[in-house]
Structure formats: structure tokens, C-alpha cells
Amino acid sequence: MSSSVLQFEPELSQPLIQEVMSRSGQNLLACYQCRRCAAGCPVGDETGVTPDRLIRMIILGEREEALNNLLVWKCVACYTCGTRCPNNIQTARINETLKQISKEAHIEPLLPKVSAFHDVFLRLTSHFGRVNELVFIGLYEMRNAKRELKHGGGWKAVADEMKNHAKLGISMMKKKRMHFQLNRVKRLSEIKRLFKKAKDEAGG
């Protein structure tokens, strides 16, 4: 939270809470801070911010904090918080919405690799209709390398990351778990139309 004194400006908090509620489909106002979500969150210890805290931030209109905290980026979408919530609030859905808002606002993600992962995953789906793991990892690593070089991680960071994945890649090859054939959908035009419509929907 940004300050030690609780500040609440209803007119400032309204737009954020309305946007998150309508996009995520979750009724954040039903949260009465029982913290069952926090008790079950597998990444809560690491993130500091637990689902109940995140909901409170949004209600208080703390836009910047709500978009820039580790929970949004480390959430593993296990849906434990939502299934245990007495009011059926799915914070994992809220995290998904916050990631989308953050991307639209061009905010640099706290964990850029997470964001790169999902972007590349969808990009490949739009190209082939299916995800080909080998192409996926290749593109994902290229995206990471580009960012490291641009933001000062340098070649060492790139090499370390590549080394880790190369090791896994070699053992996958040994175990015949690596797949070299390119899978694709035949009626790709349909997939392209769905992606175009998604873009139109987001624009509208």
C-alpha cells in the first residue's frame, strides 16, 4: 500500500473497481476479508500480497499497486482461492483481468517472462492453431534474450537462461519427449477470424 494512513476517495476508486468487476465477472464488493483465500494461496508467502489484500487495494482505488504486485504475476491460476471463497470470488480471474489491463496500459510487467510466455503461446496459436512446444520455447527464449540485452541483463543472463533450457531440452530428446513435427490446423482461416474478432472486441 502506498501510505500508512488509509485514504479513500470514492470518486477515484469507482472507475477501477467497476472495470475489474465487469471484466472479471467477480463481485469484489462481496469480500468480507475472511482470508480463507490467503490461507490456501500457494504463492501467498512469496508474494506478500494475498488475494484478500489485492481485493482491498482495488476497492480503495489503488490502481498502481493493484497492477504492480507480485500476486498478479506469480498467481499460478490454481483456483484454490475461488473454490474456498464463501462468496465465490475468483481472485485468479481478477489477476487475469489485471494482467490484461496492465498490458493495455503498456506497464512493464513485474515478471516479464510470465508475460512473454503467455504472449508467445497465443501468437503461436494464431499462426498454427496449435502449440508446437519446440517452436514455442525457441520464440519464448528469443523474446527473453531480446529483453535481457535491452535492459542490461547482458549476455550472461541470456546464456544462463539458455543453459537451463538446453539441459532440459537434451533430456527431453533422450526420453523421446521432444516432438519435431509441426502440428497445424487445416482450416486456419477460422482461427484467424476468431483472432480478428478478438481484436475487434477489445477495440470496441
Binding site: 491460476a77 494482467k99 498490458k103 510466455f117 478478438a198
Partner: peptide, 9 residues
């Protein structure tokens, strides 16, 4: 990945 990127997709 789709849920985290685009609700329509």
C-alpha cells in the same frame, strides 16, 4: 494463456 491475455479467445 488465453485467459490471461484475452477473454474472448
Amino acid at each position: 494463456s488465453a485467459s490471461k491475455t484475452d477473454d474472448f479467445l
